[in-house]
Design a binder for these strands. Structure first.
Length: 467
RNA sequence: CGGGGCGUAGCGCAGGGGCUAGCGCACCUGGUUUGGGACCAGGGGGUCGCCGGUUCAAAUCCGGCCGCCCCGACCA
């Protein structure tokens, strides 16, 4: 028997790494901090790409691609931006065997290179809005890395838009945040807490940063994505002006928004258990697998034919795989598909056929026998139920672990013993609060939630430990 | 950069001056199997992280270096 997955109870961090190894999602690479995303893991990213890309296009965005190399001087054009990113940039100093005249930054994010192009492309209000997204890799030289959650190189999408007015840009910023929210909740079945970042935590160069915070199984928070309102700061730095309807020269109002391969880490951590990965059906590259149980030397043709017929029926609606590999016992296959997190497994052997049924085993829940004629309908319903149940379970967990707390000492004690998220009174004029949180509790303000405090008109800070 | 751990077969590990370096899993061949990680038999696979030293003899002892993982500081 292969070595087991470390139980969550024993060592959550090791459990996470074990899931990634056992489910063959990723592997360590020869380069420190970089990971190899294996086919099983990449398939999850492809789900994210497919679902988000669809939503971006439905809202009028188009994809483009900008270079990975950025002249060093570009980064220096926006003061906060360079201060934020310069320390973690990889820099190319040589090319073609010669020292470069100007070093090239490997993009940590693409605001600068994209905005340099926007300044050429935009002349008139008729050129607006510009709604561009790019799927790309970026590099940030982080000190401490962890597969999917934080790697030196990671994959993401970054949307960069330009608008005529402040109102329109702000609407875009919040619209994209909401698209992320719906995607995370509907597809990944993870409950969300959207909100605004504090001045201290906002993106380097942004006027306002919004994020979606998630609570993982170990009661720590994770930022799932961000959406920034830039105002005209980059427009001024890169001279992106347009002639307005009134004939005046004005700076464009901008946004940017991104989601990275980190979200795959969130997906892994949100639903999985000690047996392996658990995928919500909509996030599963293959939601259904059929395992025919064959008898050596017996008549398997009927089992295999029925399995193939069921596959064809179900396959009209969802992706389904037929695991007819020989030389692997049913038990081995069951375990393997469980580690891979396949939502529904259909078992089918001679014993079932005699009764005209198949055995359906959901990844979470009990096995049931279903009449062959009803399998197709059952699968559709079963997947929907599973999707809903996983979300509800995660939501129940999150709700049980967000506490409205007025007393700092009580909060501190509670955070230490049980983790979780806390809605604390927040005064943005108190500049020492965040520092105190960090030094005394190792906690950060995750965000100022839009509507979580439950007290109308009162703004509270969502505080907790995070990745 | 600080703290901890580890480098021996693809993976997980044992061996701690001496004979042909070993175990489990994985892999290959043949056979028997197949309703929760099947069994039997045979087989392949090693620069014991690297460099240097001590010694008749080093995976083993000593020195140096390198690398990786985990925990902190930085962050999507």
């Amino acid at each position: 028997m292969a070595d087991r997955i470390t139980p969550r109870e024993k060592d959550f961090s090791q459990w996470y790494l074990d899931i990634i190894q056992h489910a063959k999602l990723a592997d360590y690479s020869p380069v420190k901090g970089c990971m190899v995303i294996r086919p099983n893991g990449y398939a999850l990213w492809e789900v994210v790409q497919r679902e988000l890309d669809k939503r971006f296009k439905e809202t009028g965005h188009r994809n483009a691609y900008f270079p990975i190399f950025i002249p060093e001087s570009f980064l220096n054009k926006e003061k906060e931006h360079v201060e934020g990113f310069a320390p973690e940039c990889a820099v190319v100093t040589h090319g073609g065997g010669k020292k470069l005249e100007e070093p090239l930054i490997v993009r940590p994010t693409s605001e600068t290179i994209i905005n340099s192009m926007y300044s050429k492309w935009i002349q008139s209000y008729r050129d607006l809005p510009v709604l561009i997204n790019q799927w790309a890799n970026v590099v940030r030289w982080e000190m401490r890395t962890r597969p999917f959650l934080r790697t030196t190189e990671f994959l993401w999408q970054e949307g960069h838009t330009c608008h005529e007015t402040e109102e329109e840009a702000m609407r875009e910023t919040l619209k994209m945040l909401d698209i992320y929210r719906m995607f995370i909740e509907d597809v990944l079945a993870i409950p969300t807490i959207p909100g605004e970042k504090t001045a201290n935590e906002k993106f380097a160069g942004a006027e306002k940063t919004f994020s979606i915070e998630l609570l993982l199984q170990d009661n720590k928070a994770l930022q799932g994505c961000t959406s920034h309102y830039f105002g005209t700061r980059f427009a001024k730095a890169f001279d992106i002006k347009f002639q307005s309807r009134e004939g005046k020269q004005e700076y464009v109002h901008q946004t940017s928004w991104g989601m990275s391969t980190r979200i795959v880490g969130a997906l892994i951590m949100s639903h999985s258990d000690d047996k392996g990965l658990v995928l919500p059906p909509k996030a599963a590259p293959v939601p259904v697998v059929i395992v025919p149980i064959q008898k050596k030397g017996g008549e398997n043709s009927q089992v295999l034919e029925t399995a193939a017929r069921i596959k064809a029926d179900i396959g009209k609606k969802v992706t389904v795989e037929l695991d007819d590999r020989e030389g692997f016992s049913p038990g081995y296959k069951f375990t393997e598909w469980e580690i891979l997190g396949i939502p529904l497994r259909i078992e089918l052997g001679a014993r079932d056929l005699e009764q005209g049924v198949v055995t359906v085993a959901p990844r979470v829940g009990e096995k049931v026998q279903v009449k062959i004629a009803e399998v197709e309908a059952y699968v559709e319903k079963g997947l929907a139920t599973l999707q809903k149940d996983l979300y509800r379970k995660a939501k129940t967990f999150m709700d049980a672990n967000i506490h409205v707390e007025d007393d700092y000492a009580t909060f501190k004690k509670r955070l230490e013993s049980e983790g979780g998220l806390y809605l604390l009174p927040y005064d943005e004029k108190d500049t020492t609060f965040e520092k105190r949180l960090k030094e005394e509790c190792k906690a950060t303000i995750r965000c100022l939630p839009f509507n979580q405090s439950g007290i109308p008109g009162e703004r509270r800070a969502l505080v907790g430990l995070s990745y």
